[in-house]
Nucleic acid binder design. Structure first.
Lengths: 172, 172
DNA sequence: AAATAACTACCTACTGGTCGATAATTTTGC
DNA sequence: GCAAAATTATCGACCAGTAGGTAGTTATTT
């Protein structure tokens, strides 16, 4: 793993625990074994790092999902696959969804970071609409916003109350 | 309004836009016309201020709701009343739910603040369970976590995408 | 020679927090 | 009733620590 990748990984962990202000160049640098000034070589500003982090997070999130109609063709319910990805983030990573956290504080984010968070939710809603469409839902757009809202909310509350059974109950 | 009340009000606005780290004693002080050193007279530490803020927020939130069975007796659906309170926060205040934001970053909060955020959600779940029970829901506890999850999630996404129609679609 | 990736040293701004001092007000003891 | 004592609410000055960011340098690789 390159230093740049290690910096992004370290930043992701910090942000998913406490938001955009929960990481500093100094902390990231010391975690990957370089000096804080060197972080600026890879990311000119903190906003650049945050934006690239959210962008890559979105891409790998969507990539992990696959295509709704392909999932359906393989006998899987794409909504279950989607739910499972959230569950893994909560149970395995024991962390919030990166963009769920950044979205909550989006009013105070640098423009380029906020833009990437918007991209995450727009792409998720598009994916979920397609998924609900293949499931024969009468109103896919509505089902899409309801699905992602429920998952993000349940995740946040389960984290807060430190009890994953709330997530299970909400998604059951 | 006393200085202490003004400080809490100023802090609430800041936190609901960007989280716990989005306010400083200096900012609050200058907004209410005192010096930062004087803020420590009212709140020994930042954690004390944050905890008292979340506590009062929870109390006034619950007070604004009223009792589920009384609402029902007056011909109102308590779940609609609950939804309306979230809608008002989003549409009128144009801000996140204080504890929705703090909950997302609860891993990085001081203990006494996190405790108050937990109290918010525990009390909300109790209220919602009672409300769904009066509505004759077969599984009030499940309906409760689903209601608050959907509302918190829809609120966050509507804020992020800067489009309240997502909230309306999700709650419709 | 040029690009890459790091470094040391430094800057200004801001953070939460502490200190002792200072008025104004309120409470208490005689 | 009144002086002494205590409480309330503020202040200026300061502290150590941390923030993001910059300038110029060095070593390694291409």
């Amino acid at each position: 793993m390159s230093k740049k990748e290690a910096l992004l990984k370290a930043a992701e962990n910090k942000v998913r625990l406490g938001g955009y202000s929960n990481f500093s160049f100094r902390e990231l640098a010391s975690e990957v074994g370089i000096k804080s000034a060197s972080v600026h070589y890879h990311f000119p500003t903190k906003a650049d790092l945050g934006a690239e982090l959210a962008h890559q997070y979105t891409d790998s999130f969507l990539a992990a999902l696959g295509e709704p109609n392909e999932l359906k063709a393989n006998g899987k319910n794409p909504i279950d696959v989607y739910t499972q990805l959230f569950r893994r983030a909560l149970v395995t990573d024991k962390k919030m969804c990166l963009c769920g956290l950044l979205g909550a504080e989006s009013d105070s984010l640098p423009d380029k970071v906020r833009l990437e968070v918007k991209r995450f939710f727009n792409q998720n809603l598009t994916w979920l609409s397609a998924a609900h469409l293949t499931n024969g839902e009468p109103n896919p757009a509505q089902a899409a916003i309801q699905t992602v809202s429920l998952l993000e909310g349940a995740m946040m509350i389960s984290k807060t109350l430190d009890d994953n059974s709330y997530f299970e109950l909400a998604t059951q």
